[in-house]
Amino acid sequence: MSGIVLTPRGAFEARVDLTGALPGADLASLKIGYGGRRVALAELFEISGAADGRLTVAGGGVELDNVAAGLTDGEVVVEGDVGARLAQGATGGAVLVKGSAGDYAASELAGGKVTVEGDVGERLGAASAGARRGMSGGVVTVGGSAGVRAAERQRGGVIVVKGDTAEGAATDMIAGTLAVGGALGAKAGRGMKRGTLLLHSPEGLAAGFADAGEHDLVMLRVLVRRSAELAAFLGADATRARRFAGDLNAAGQGEALVFSR
């Protein structure tokens, strides 16, 4: 295990705000939120290793909020679960969570790669409270399923959910791409302005989506060659899809492309 390693000294008794705990930061003097208090990072974690652009949290926890929030470069690895706002507002770098993540994971992400091997909570890649737009760039891959309103008001970037999405995925989506490998929850794409949903079934799409027929799309050939994540999702030879336009009830020009398995 290279780089800096944070090993929890014990079980957490309150939520831990890891804002600022990033590769390259002065972790020895960093103060973090712990419940209603500010404490030294070293009070909760044993800090070991040498800085080389990689930060590992050896043992996660659902209490760990804001992990890799604002990350600009380097790599963050969590060997367990994390709490809310994973990689919120990050602009670069790579994040790997070997467990599951809480609500608002990758919300307002602008760049970099975020991978969650397990499930994520509500509003993956969405806009946080008070924000107008959700994720605007970068790539998010979720190995499991996502909670309600994944990609709500997403503005750009690529989200791949290998499992299911709960109700309201891509609500008010502005642009970007959401790929769902499993089942799509109800009312997906409601209010969608632009953007693309990549699906294996139209089941779950909001009422404002209309079938535009099956097409051989050159664009798909480009996507799978420029995005390893989409190539893994669609297969390298994907060219044909059934196109549903929507949300027409909101005068939207988004689309859902449905691929037969």
Partner: peptide
Amino acid sequence: WQIAKKVGDKRIWR
């Protein structure tokens, strides 16, 4: 009716 699609740092138009 044109559609922009940005993947990585490159934008394509349809």
